[in-house]
């Protein structure tokens, strides 16, 4: 029986001889196979964009959301298993509520991120549990520091703050696209279009299932409240991205002709 872990990969409580915990790595695989999720911390806010795969024609567009609000000033987008993701969302909501109950102010983004990280990490140290098959991007606003922040929480329990991040199938190309952007100047409205383009680029219409774009943001425009992006803006970004890609294709064709 061929196996990658040779028996060291059956429990999150087992280290392999070279110090790896395979079960956590396998859980990460579930995230890597999911639809692309992109998060960008722009000059005037944070945008989260999701490639939501539609498995059936008869599915309602509002179904299977991958973005969720957890507090007025905080929200998440998730890649991987939506069922696992919902548990993290539920925990995030509890943390936001209890912090508010105790201290009377909204939970600071860094505290929320760390508390969620502790929760997710707990599932990687017990034999009776399994790690989450979902990664979570957290967008939140810190009303006292006047900062908006983006965090990525992985199934390992690692949680880091980012300027731009991508998860799921198309993460590699999306990451390299994000690196080309000037994130100190980019506005949220511009980011919507850029993310739409990244997702369209990584999506292979011939091979992959059809998808719709799902966007949520938290920005000056929304008075630092987290919420879904209005549909007309999504449609606009979608149309722009498709047009850009078409003209890119034409350019490519032109180059080939010149070369020949």
């Amino acid at each position: 029986m061929a196996s990658t872990g040779a028996g060291y990969d059956l429990s999150p409580t087992t280290f392999s001889p070279d110090g790896r915990i395979f079960q956590v790595e396998y859980a990460t695989k579930a995230v890597e196979n999911s639809g692309t999720v992109v998060g960008i911390r722009c000059a005037d806010g944070v945008v989260l964009g999701v490639e939501k795969v539609m498995l059936s024609k008869m599915l309602l567009p509002s179904s299977n959301r991958r973005v969720a609000a957890v507090a007025p000033h905080a929200g998440v987008a998730q890649a991987g298993s939506t069922a696992d993701g919902r548990q993290v969302v539920a925990r995030a909501r509890d943390e936001c509520d209890s912090y508010d109950d105790t201290y009377g102010i909204e939970i600071p983004p860094s505290v929320l991120a760390q508390r969620l990280a502790e929760y997710v990490h707990y599932f990687t140290i017990h034999g009776a549990l399994r790690p989450f098959g979902a990664s979570t991007m957290i967008a939140a606003y810190d009303a006292r520091k006047k900062t908006h922040e983006l965090y990525v929480l992985e199934p390992t329990g690692v949680c880091l703050r980012y300027f731009g991040a991508a998860l799921g199938k198309g993460r590699q190309s999306a990451k390299s696209e994000i690196e080309k952007l000037d994130l100190t100047k980019l506005t949220c409205r511009e980011a919507l279009k850029e993310i739409a383009k990244m997702i369209h680029t990584t999506h292979d219409d011939a091979k992959d299932k059809p998808f719709i774009l799902e966007f949520a943001w938290l920005c000056e425009e929304t008075e630092w409240k987290y919420g879904l992006v209005p549909q007309d803006l999504i449609d606009e970004a979608d149309a722009w991205a498709k047009k850009e890609l078409e003209s890119d294709d034409e350019d490519d064709d032109g180059d080939e002709e010149m070369a020949s």
């Binding site: 029986m1 196996s3 396998y26 990460t28 399994r130």
Partner: peptide, 15 residues
């Protein structure tokens, strides 16, 4: 060997 427990991920990231 990955298909008898609910809490075990397969190397492909499946349950």
């Amino acid at each position: 060997q990955y298909d008898t427990d609910v809490t075990v991920w397969s190397p492909q990231g499946r349950l």
